[in-house]
């Protein structure tokens, strides 16, 4: 299978990429790792007239750990998963990206690409939501930040403008009293999430859950926060009964998608199973 014809540009700076986006408008697509875009182009599901390859922009490939974990939009999953500083500051992020696809996918796929594509079964959006990540995007008017909560609008659609590029994503450092986990039922061939649940908890000085964020991916058209579960676990002591009660509320108020791999009903059931696992693991980690 061969993609349709297109013009190819490989800018080396973000400014150059943004001005190419402005110039070519809706005809252009950004090419990162290409493992979602190129297969779609080979099937002629999409036929962009212009590809702007952002993999030659070295400024957006960095991974740094200071007060927070800042990952360039062009950093590969492999670069994040194999970074020891990321693993110790925000283990759930390294765990999550290490589960994406296979070695070859992780060698190409990028953090910005995953978030911008917003595949309903992508792993990273759930972790971005649960951790309250901040996405920095640059457009013709300069840079702006987008909270993960505002990022995922609907299936394959984000808050990014067509002429913006994700330059970096900031994740919190998980300090003492905080824990986070990503638990996933993977489709065995593609390794996309049939259901993936990310949970973050922060304990108060009394040892109770002071703050919780839970997000589900894979089950519906977009990654979704689980408000009722978060409210139910917050203020509790986080024991098995509290986790079970919070888990009961998971996946009740969201849209589902069924496919040949799993029905809507099955995904609804699995959201609860994986929410329970993710919450239990996050709470155990927070307790140290």
């Amino acid at each position: 299978m061969i993609p349709g014809e297109f013009q190819y540009f490989a800018p080396t700076t973000v400014d150059e990429a943004v001005s190419l986006l402005q110039q070519h408008g809706e005809d252009a697509k950004l090419l990162g790792g290409g493992h979602s875009l190129l297969p779609a182009m080979k099937l002629r599901l999409t036929t962009p007239a212009v590809l702007i390859d952002v993999t030659k922009i070295s400024d957006i490939k960095g991974v740094s750990v200071n007060g927070s974990v800042t990952v360039g939009g062009g950093a590969t999953y492999h670069a994040v998963a194999s970074n020891d500083a990321v693993r110790s500051a925000c283990g759930v992020l390294a765990d999550c990206v290490a589960q994406i696809g296979d070695t070859q996918v992780r060698n190409r796929g990028t953090i910005g690409g995953s978030l911008a594509h917003a595949d309903p079964a992508a792993d990273l959006p759930a972790v971005a939501l649960a951790l309250g990540a901040t996405i920095t995007a640059q457009g013709p008017g300069g840079a702006r930040t987008i909270n993960a909560d505002d990022m995922f609008v609907e299936m394959l659609t984000t808050a990014l403008e067509p002429n913006e590029i994700i330059t970096s994503v900031s994740f919190p450092r998980l300090g003492a009293g905080a824990g986070a986990a990503y638990e996933k039922m993977r489709q065995p061939a593609s390794r996309y999430a049939i259901v993936g649940v990310a949970a973050y908890v922060k304990l108060g000085s009394d040892g109770n859950v002071a703050e919780a964020r839970v997000a589900v991916t894979g089950a519906g058209p977009k990654a979704t926060r689980q408000d009722a579960t978060e409210a139910a676990i917050t203020g509790t002591n986080g024991d098995d009964a509290a986790i079970a009660a919070a888990t009961d509320k998971a996946g009740e108020d969201m849209d589902y998608l069924g496919d040949i791999h799993a029905s809507e009903e099955y995904r609804r059931a699995m959201v609860k199973v994986y929410t329970k696992r993710a919450l239990a693991k996050a709470i155990a980690q927070a307790r140290g």
């Binding site: 090419l31 290409g34 190129l38 390859d53 070859q104 060698n107 190409r108």
Partner: peptide, 12 residues
């Protein structure tokens, strides 16, 4: 680094 060459453009 290992890659799947059916999903990389030669120009890349």
């Amino acid at each position: 680094q290992s890659v799947k060459s059916c999903t990389v453009l030669a120009v890349q």
